[in-house]
Design a binder for these strands. Sequence first.
DNA 1: CAGGTGAATAAGTATGACAATATTGGTGAC
DNA 2: GTCACCAATATTGTCATACTTATTCACCTG
Lengths: 258, 258
Amino acid sequence: MDRSGGRVRHSGDLIAALSGRNLAHNLHSDVLWDLGFAIVSGQYAQGSILPPDTELLDRFRVSRTVLREALKTLAAKGLIEARARIGTRVLPRNRWNLFDADVLAWHFELGPEVSFLQSLAEVRIGIEIEAAALAAERRTDDQAGLLLAAVDRMAAARTPEEFARHDLEFHKAVADASGNPFMASISALVEMALTAAFTISSPVNEPEALEQTVAVHRAIAQAILDKSSQRAREAMRIAIAEGFARAAGRMENLESNP
Amino acid sequence: MDRSGGRVRHSGDLIAALSGRNLAHNLHSDVLWDLGFAIVSGQYAQGSILPPDTELLDRFRVSRTVLREALKTLAAKGLIEARARIGTRVLPRNRWNLFDADVLAWHFELGPEVSFLQSLAEVRIGIEIEAAALAAERRTDDQAGLLLAAVDRMAAARTPEEFARHDLEFHKAVADASGNPFMASISALVEMALTAAFTISSPVNEPEALEQTVAVHRAIAQAILDKSSQRAREAMRIAIAEGFARAAGRMENLESNP
DNA sequence: CAGGTGAATAAGTATGACAATATTGGTGAC
DNA sequence: GTCACCAATATTGTCATACTTATTCACCTG
């Protein structure tokens, strides 16, 4: 863990860039990402105590202000808890806020494991199925129009990035139409899942896969348009499950044919 | 907004105490809760700019360090974003991390509206249904035992607090048995929903309601024991929907008979 | 009128000192 | 010999002030 010399750009930039997030690089965020990743990757075990301020100060060569703000940010995300005289303890994983974009990004930074992608797909199924059903009950005509338009743009996409952007747009539109603020709040999750999945394998390059993906998304839009919550549920489940299956299959291929 | 004189204890302490969270009161957390609540309550509109550091410093009578750490914490939860020369902007609500325990608590602090409780119930249904189904597929014998034990303790509870504690314990056990880390991560959500619901009306005081609540939880446990994911799904949906319906009904009563 | 240039403003960073707090171990009373 | 209490100590919490950097807006030049 020698950080001698030039500060290393973290690979999280990739995901941040893809998702259009601002990537203002200040000192604080460097320290934050370094520590956040170290914790998520298990380098600092759950329940263990981080090195005291003085040591971290020396390691990162930043001021106390910067270090403490980074630690406060980690605390806000539920990763650590500081107590006087004791030190800064890494909290057990069930206290971490996994629905946080950064925490999620740190998980992906150590190479997305299939099991993690699967867990992600499972929660997405739970939440987005319900979002689709609610959208079918509550949608306005405008919202339905947006959904159909997004599907058309997916079908017309020519690059993986373009496809992913419109796919995300579609899922955000569903969340929006559900009228439930919590649904909109998990777009960070969807974003991460989609960019991860498309980094591994985009349907754009396989005509029949593309056609299938577009078709199932169109089915969701149509069900919502028809105000059929049951059909919306089923179609959404298929969309997410298929997306995960494609990524998982590709990863296994990569393992056998490197 | 004159805060002349003694600092006011925030009512969030109630929820924090009920949920067994540590309530170490440092300056930083005072400022944090004050600002967080002000934002969530709409006192600072989405998209608006917070007063500059100097003014907040003067208002709270704390050091710059404390103020900035509070702001960093809010930023970590997605409520604000600081930009040089512009100021600190309140982000739109869809950027807020509603799955954060604090953000959730601030929402409840301004009197839980029925619509908010409903949104909460909707996401819970989505996530916990899936958790129950997965638990049915993956449970170990030990985990099944814990579930049944929790139900028994619910049935034997004599006070609302006791009942709420074991109810929460039950839902945590389900999340744990699902083997999906995301499911465990939302216990903050469940916690808040349950304490809120029981603050409004606890089934402990109504024998037939208690019996019904226990019965449906026992059905969930039994389905998971039997490895029947479909029955687990249905029972979980009923459990959450009934809990919400009871609270909502009680709130309407309170409105007409104050 | 277009485009560059600099002043003003707000956040970002640095530093050193002091306060609060909880563990640890020792000290004394029973 | 055991227990309760207290002091030493290590670690985070807070403060005050100064300086740096980035960004916008207005002005000024071509």
